[in-house]
Every structure is written in C-alpha cells, then in structure tokens.
Design a protein around this nucleic acid. Structure first.
Lengths: 241, 241
DNA sequence: CAGTGGTCTAGACCACACC
DNA sequence: GTGTGGTCTAGACCACTGT
C-alpha cells in the first residue's frame, strides 16, 4: 500500500500542527507549500480541501488557511463523525476496552415492504434477522437488530456473529463497509430495553437506525441500534457549501 | 451570482437522474460527459465527487458510476445531514409550517471555563445567554440555550431573538454560519422539560449540543438544544476514505 | 486488451482581502 | 497592487474491471 501524495501531505501537516510549528495558527500559502513539498498546487489543494471538510482547518479566500483551534484543544472529538468512521456498530471503539457480544437471535425471514425498499430486494428474497446484545466492560449498552440479504452472504453462520460481521464481509466479498445512512433519535425505553440494558423506567434509549452500504453502493444491512442513553453520543462535524 | 460549471453539472445530472434518463442506473463515463458538456474531465470529476460524497452516486473504479437507488426512492432523506444544512437551530425547516419562537431569557454572564474553551474567550470576555422556546404549529418542541460572545455582536437586541439570529449575523457581519460541530444524545426529561415541552415523566428529550462556526472559523455560538423526542431526528450520510 | 475511474501536473485566469 | 484561495483546462500516467 503506497501512500498517496495528498495523504502524505495531510499526515505531515497534522503532525506539524500538533508540534506547534504554526504558532500563528496560519498555514503557509498554497503556492509555498507546493514548493516545499515539491508537488503541484493541485495536490496541496486536494490535501487542504480534505482537511477543511474534516474541520481541521478553515480556508478563507484572500487571507489564507487557518488552523481550527478546537482541533488542537480537543482532538478527540475529531475522531468521530463524518470522515473518520461510520460511528456505529462494528466500528465501535470504546477507549481500548474489550467489547463483547451476545447473540440473542439468528433467523431467516421475508423482508417487510420497508426492508425490501431499503435493501433493494424483491418479494422472493429472504433476509437474516440478527439480534445481538453488546457489552462494554461487562456492561450491556446496546441492542442491535440487523437485517442482511441472504443472497449477499449465503454462507453466514452463527459463529461469525460473535465477532465482526463487517470483517467477515471484507474477507468474503472483498469489499468494505464504507458508507452509511443513519437516523439518530430518542425513545422511551420499553420493558425489554429496561431488562436488557439495565435501565430505570424513566430512562430512555438512544436509537440509531439506518443502512450500511458496501463500497460499490450495494446496501448490506439495515440496522436498528438501541443504546443505553449514557452510552449514546453521536458526534458530527458538518460543513455546508 | 454566476453558476459555476460543476454546480451546473450537478443540477443537470440530478434533474436527468429524476427524469429517469439513466434507466440502467449507470451514468456515462467521465470522458463522454466531458465531451457532452464541453468541459474538462476535471470539472466532471469535481461534480461527480461532490455527488458521491452526498450519497447520490457511487463510483467504482474500472466499472463506472452508478446511481444510488435510495436517492431515487427516498429523496427526502438526502435533504438533511452532511452537505445540505446544519440540521439544527435557525436552520430548522419543518415542512413549510410556520415555526415561532418565545424568548425565555436574555442575559449577560461570564463564560464558564468550558465556554471559554469552546468559544475561544478570555476571562475578561462576556457572553449573552439566550434561552428560547421554539414552537412548531403552536406545539412547543425545543428548548434552546445559546451562548454568544458579546464582542461578536455588541449591538444584539432582544427583538432580534424573536427572529433568526443567523440572519442577523449575516446582515451584521457579512458572514454566514456554515459549519457546526454537534453532539447528539438522549436524556431523561427534567421537570422543566416536562413542563415546557408537555412531556410525560417517562418521555425523554433528545439533546443536540455543540458549536456553530462562521465561514472564517470563528466560533459564533455554543448551543444546547433539548427537543421533544418525537421531533428529534438527526439524519446523516457518512462516507469514509 | 479496452474501458473506466484515480492521481497528479503545469499553468491560466478569476474573486476576494488587505495594505 | 500584491497576495491569497477558487475554478478550470489539457493532458499524462496509474490501477482496477471485465471481456
């Protein structure tokens, strides 16, 4: 895996930013950077655009390129949300602790109309219904119900579910799960939520629900994730126009 | 306001997609598109990259560019989240109904340590504390507490708060609010929530909390928004790498 | 091998900010 | 006016897909 030029520039600039090599919070102008790195200005622009859309820097026409002080002061929040991971499911990273999984159910069913629409299925298709309870440090924090078309993973077996489905997909289909479309909202907890997630009756769940796509655009899974409210924090950096 | 080439191409391709002019769900290859529009391939690539990061299309090296069927079937969901608006606060659009606002409080205070950090303030600075209750169709749905540095809007007056602060910022500072960093989570409702938002004791609030930035990267406002859970739905399309 | 998208270059010209 | 980022071009070469 060779490192592309603009990726190299991004890593290098990030490192320099953290090493405080731009004490005035201002990056050199694009033409100078192109000279320094001995690359074209376009490559610099590509690197800076990516960094801007990640919220690391702000570009201001006529003035220059400036470091987002929030990135320096609070870097951790930049490791979530747009541009870093999919924020959910198999991508959960809870500070190096070991997450575990308990499989609650593994069935095959006909998809509802809604599932047919979201996963691009016909009436003849079947889906797996996978119910799992996820633990963080022996604390249950998430009930996950996933629906995956059988035809995508005909050989899926229950022992895979104890580990990462996405890793299995990578190995089996040579594709990664790189896109998601999610809705995030809140609901009162049901009796089942309260039992499985050890919630008090007045404590809610956070819900993340949506579709995971493969690189090529195929919808892989419709997922409904009900989280203990203390564990749900969805971070996102948004930049318009 | 002239329309840029790549913006024109995006609009045109979107329209063609909806007019079903690509029945095989595949766009022409980039070189052909460049010819058709009589522009360089780079401009086509710019347009397609934007559309891909918005989730409208999927590009697959070696094969071509494909339309996301979800975009056709469910266009509405693509009007939220990354790349379309900031999803919150003054940008709320609730299906053409008329939202109204009631100002609950308008004070000046010293920022806490946390506010100083998030809004890049010194100990000598002051902030406005603005509490508002937002209604949709005469239904209260959101308690909004915002903190704005006085030095950014020294002439802010209470009648502005009845309307849109962001519009006022646009007029006053010639800058728009184009970036935000938000955390989305859920909490049990407090007594105050229950009273103001007409919630039952077991019903939760959705919380959106974070910072709104101006174009140039200046943090304008720290905002905490507590929503009636039925009105909170945060949609986001995420694409990594 | 032909076709497709990905990366990169070198350079022109434009729009905006600041002095 | 000078300096900055923004848009756009024309073209080279690479990497992957499918026949």
């Amino acid at each position: 895996m060779v490192e592309l030029i603009y990726q190299h520039i991004i890593s290098d600039l990030k490192q320099k930013i953290f090493a405080n090599q731009f004490p005035d919070m201002k990056l050199p102008d694009e033409r100078s950077l192109a000279q320094q790195y001995d690359v074209s200005r376009s490559s610099i622009k590509r690197a800076l655009s990516r960094m801007a859309s990640d919220g690391i820097i702000f570009k201001k026409r006529g003035s220059g390129t400036f470091i987002n002080p929030l990135y320096l002061k609070n870097e951790s929040v930049f490791n979530y949300g747009s541009g870093k991971n999919l924020g959910v499911s198999d991508n959960f990273q809870l500070n190096g602790e070991k997450p575990t999984v308990k499989v609650l159910g593994f069935d095959v069913m006909r998809p509802t109309k809604e599932l047919q629409r979201d996963l691009f299925l016909n009436e003849e298709d079947f889906v797996y219904k996978i119910e799992r309870l996820r633990f963080f440090d022996d604390q249950p924090f998430m009930i996950e119900t996933g629906y995956i078309p059988i035809k995508l993973l005909p050989k899926l077996s229950s022992n895979v579910l104890e580990k990462s489905i996405f890793d299995y997909v990578q190995a089996e289909l040579k594709q990664s799960v790189s896109k998601s479309f999610m809705s995030v909202f809140a609901e009162p907890s049901t009796d089942k939520d309260q039992e499985l997630l050890q919630l008090k009756p007045n404590e809610p769940v956070g819900v993340m629900e949506g579709i995971f796509f493969l690189d090529n655009g195929t919808p892989l899974e419709f997922s409904n994730m009900r989280l203990h409210y203390k564990y749900m924090k969805y971070n996102s950096f948004v930049s318009v126009e």
